[in-house]
Design a protein around this nucleic acid. Structure first.
Length: 105
DNA sequence: TTCGTGACCTAGC
DNA sequence: AGCTAGGCCACGA
């Protein structure tokens, strides 16, 4: 029979694909959207294993602190940040994003 | 099976 | 703002 995880994975992909350009979500929010609250870690693991050619907007996922979950000096960080900047996502001087603009606005 | 690690989160200090 | 601790879960050694 179909494992519950497979379905959750589909929900995760669907939820992620539904994130509009110019906005972001946290790993925890995405987990909740996928029907698995508290499984932020699972989301992170899934994204880490995502193929490079994926159409999914993985770059619109950031951590609960409003920061990109990559070392600031890494190529991955620069890659994600430039993608977000291209969509008009604002970064503060300290490299953070105002989550209030999305989650609570 | 226990341990360490990881694109995490929240609470407390 | 930084650190610690607990929670969560999957994986490899």
């Amino acid at each position: 029979m179909t494992e519950p995880n497979t379905n959750a994975l589909q929900q995760l992909y669907t939820a992620l694909a539904g994130i509009p350009a110019g906005s972001v979500v946290t790993y925890g929010q995405l987990a909740a959207l996928a029907g698995m609250p508290g499984r932020a870690r699972w989301v992170g693991r899934v994204l880490s294993q995502l193929p490079e050619g994926s159409q999914l907007p993985w770059f619109r996922v950031i951590n609960a602190q409003g920061r990109i979950s990559f070392p600031p000096d890494s190529a991955a960080f620069a890659r994600q940040q430039s993608r977000l900047l291209a969509e008009g996502v604002d970064f503060s001087a300290s490299g953070r994003i105002d989550l209030n603009r999305f989650g609570l606005n």
